[in-house]
Design a protein around this nucleic acid. Sequence first.
DNA 1: CATTAGTACAACCATACGGTTGTAGGAGTG
DNA 2: CACTCCTACAACCGTATGGTTGTACTAATG
Lengths: 111, 111
Amino acid sequence: MPTALDIDRIFRALADGTRRDIVLRAIDAGEGVAELADHYPMSFAATQKHVAVLERAGLVTKERIGRRKVVRTNVEGLRVARRLLDHYEELWRGRIDRMTELVTDTKETPA
Amino acid sequence: MPTALDIDRIFRALADGTRRDIVLRAIDAGEGVAELADHYPMSFAATQKHVAVLERAGLVTKERIGRRKVVRTNVEGLRVARRLLDHYEELWRGRIDRMTELVTDTKETPA
DNA sequence: CATTAGTACAACCATACGGTTGTAGGAGTG
DNA sequence: CACTCCTACAACCGTATGGTTGTACTAATG
């Protein structure tokens, strides 16, 4: 079960356009850090830091292939976030249901 | 359609435990800012700032009721984030499908 | 084995963020 | 009207974040 800090890191990591783009590109899992860096108007080191943030959040993994380290997005990380949002929406639906139930009760036992 | 900055704000807003808790409590939409603040070990102003962050992200709205401003979570905001994660997972599935297809093609047209 | 490609990491800087206190405005209540 | 409750916002402070450059390690290549 992910801790609150895990959730913090996941959402924090997703709160940056460059990092979201890296997640997208890394779905096809072919590029190393340097290749990823070529896509962005920043230094290699900056990109490397973004990858590190994603890695700490569990959203990507790195695999050594030759002299490169290929970045691969980890769906399970994404699912942790999605499940939480699903849960929020469930609770929301529950609220609607409770309100409906309340109206029904009122109708069935009118004052 | 939400801009990249909108997405930034939404995920950023969700990257804090206090704010996520406010979103949860505000689903039942009954508490004003001061009442919310009572739940957390911080000043009223700090809580008020958190609510402001959520409001800017479109995750909650405030409605004046008497002298209070009742905070209510906005599901649509949550859905923006959820849809994005759904999309990422779809792309992931797409990758799997393409890999499977590749294998199938190889089997059907062997060298 | 010297060189080059790719990666990692430390040090540094400006700005953003999460907290504080203090002050001021808007809406009920005596 | 005076007062109190709730909210809003500015100013401030320490720390985290996103960027930079520079140095060092690892692995393929001549």
